[in-house]
Amino acid sequence: MRWPLTPRQEQAIVRLLLLFLTALSIFILAFIIFFILRHGLPVLSWEFLVRNPREMGKEGGIFSTIIGTIVLIILALTLATPLGVGTAIFLTEYTPEGRLTRIIRFGSECLAGIPSIIFGLFGFILFVTKLKFGWSILSGSLTLAFMILPTIIRTSEEAIKFVPQAYREVSFSLGGTKWQTVSRVVLPSALPGIATGVILSIGRSIGETAAVIFTAGSALRIPDSLFSSTRTMSVHFYILAREGISLSKAYGTAAVLLISILSVNIFTYYLMNRFLRKYS
């Protein structure tokens, strides 16, 4: 090939290079999953899932951390979902675009960009120390709720905007009040889209570590009250790996983490596609 290259030759080379880089990206990401599953799946067993950890996690399973994760996420969603959906309803149905909506959206976007360690720091100072909740499920779920709020706001807003305007007109024209229109027509139609956001934030919460470890703590017992400290799967995995407690248990926990997150995300994807297809 002679220099300078013709545009055709240049294109051929670039194309090859781009293909290589794209394939590399896919390979790396797929490899991570493969690697974790390859080492983690052999560790998995029914026992691993339903037995509590013993000797700091060196022996036994991860049952209490699964419970911890689930409890924390359910509580966080219980708080964040009404707040997020309410905000989205207000933004889309109750107020015209203007300064107020801009401020609210800006706040939500900023919140979305704040790193989880800052949430951890904040949750620690406010909930754990100032409000004296201690390292507890309460502190952890409040912090987590704040963290996932922007995701729920954004996805709910998009879902609500997808509901055909004609539905609202029908409801109003039949004598519906605004709230009747929202609660009986808009929300039911937007529900699958809203669910997408909620499930998406479940996926994010399962993997969250920095914000949780400083607020919910890392106790290995099964929690018995809102004020018990608990350890989530991701925190458990982090501690196992970082303190070199047990590599095989770490792989096993990582596999459970990955499988649960990926299935949640795949489910979200499925749900979102169905929702979009329905309205377009």
């Binding site: 009404p82 905000t87 207000f90 109750y94 706040g107 939500s108 704040i114 904040f122 406010l126």
Partner: peptide
């Protein structure tokens, strides 16, 4: 009146994100 109340309630909720942001900044 109920509609007004709901609107007010939703406004309060809608301010949660920005309030949380403010709260975080203040504490940090």
């Amino acid at each position: 009146n109920r509609e007004k109340l709901i609107q007010l309630f939703l406004l309060t909720i809608a301010l949660s994100a920005i309030s949380i942001l403010a709260l975080i900044s203040i504490f940090i």
